[in-house]
Deep mutational scan, measured.
Amino acid sequence: MASQGTKRSYEQMETDGERQNATEIRASVGKMIGGIGRFYIQMCTELKLSDYEGRLIQNSLTIERMVLSAFDERRNKYLEEHPSAGKDPKKTGGPIYRRVNGKWMRELILYDKEEIRRIWRQANNGDDATAGLTHMMIWHSNLNDATYQRTRALVRTGMDPRMCSLMQGSTLPRRSGAAGAAVKGVGTMVMELVRMIKRGINDRNFWRGENGRKTRIAYERMCNILKGKFQTAAQKAMMDQVRESRNPGNAEFEDLTFLARSALILRGSVAHKSCLPACVYGPAVASGYDFEREGYSLVGIDPFRLLQNSQVYSLIRPNENPAHKSQLVWMACHSAAFEDLRVLSFIKGTKVLPRGKLSTRGVQIASNENMETMESSTLELRSRYWAIRTRSGGNTNQQRASAGQISIQPTFSVQRNLPFDRTTIMAAFNGNTEGRTSDMRTEIIRMMESARPEDVSFQGRGVFELSDEKAASPIVPSFDMSNEGSYFFGDNAEEYDN
Rank of each mutant, 00 (worst) to 15 (best):
A387V: 07
V299W: 07
E454S: 06
L259E: 03
N202T: 04
L298K: 04
A153K: 11
F479R: 11
K87M: 12
I116V: 10
M196F: 06
R38D: 07
T378A: 15
S478D: 01
G180I: 08
Q4W: 06
K90I: 15
G34V: 07
E64I: 04
I33Q: 04
F258S: 09
A123E: 04
F304P: 03
P283A: 08
L172R: 01
L47C: 12
G282T: 08
Q235I: 03
T232N: 14
A428H: 13
G268D: 02
A323V: 08
G356W: 11
S274W: 06
K351C: 13
I225F: 12
K91D: 04
L381R: 03
F429A: 01
F258T: 09
G349V: 09
D51Y: 09
A85H: 01
I36G: 06
L61F: 13
E11F: 09
A123F: 05
A471L: 00
E24F: 14
R384E: 02
I63V: 10
S402Q: 09
A278K: 04
P161E: 00
L381H: 02
E465I: 01
C223N: 11
D203Q: 06
E81W: 06
C279S: 15
G356D: 03
S486L: 01
K470P: 00
A336H: 01
A218L: 03
N309F: 08
S467D: 09
L172T: 13
G349Y: 03
E494L: 14
R208V: 00
R213Q: 12
G393E: 09
K113L: 03
L379G: 00
E434N: 08
L341Q: 13
D497A: 06
G34I: 10
F429M: 12
T188A: 13
S450V: 01
G485Y: 09
R391Y: 14
R317A: 03
G185M: 06
R152G: 09
R8M: 05
G288S: 14
M43K: 12
K348N: 12
M374F: 12
Q42E: 10
N432G: 15
G177T: 03
S359P: 08
M66A: 07
P318D: 14
P89G: 15
R195G: 10
I96Q: 00
S165H: 01
M159N: 00
A182N: 09
A366L: 02
N142H: 14
R208D: 02
S450F: 06
G490T: 05
R98C: 02
P354K: 10
F253G: 04
K325E: 11
G394E: 12
K77P: 00
P303N: 03
D421P: 00
M191W: 05
M137V: 09
L276P: 06
P419D: 02
A286Y: 05
D160R: 02
G5A: 08
I116M: 11
V414T: 09
A179F: 01
T23I: 10
L56D: 04
R74W: 12
G94T: 05
Y52G: 10
A237E: 09
G460N: 02
P410H: 11
N397W: 00
Y313K: 08
N321S: 08
L193H: 05
A278V: 14
F488S: 12
G94A: 11
L264A: 09
G86H: 14
S176G: 12
R382I: 07
A472C: 01
K325I: 03
N483Q: 10
A22N: 10
V352K: 05
T92G: 01
A70P: 09
Y487C: 12
D127N: 10
F230K: 05
P477R: 06
E339K: 13
A181R: 10
L133Y: 05
E46R: 06
M239D: 03
S376V: 01
E339V: 10
T92S: 11
S402M: 02
A337L: 01
G349T: 04
N101A: 00
E380Y: 09
T215D: 01
C333P: 00
A182T: 14
R391M: 05
Q311W: 00
A336P: 07
G54K: 08
R243V: 03
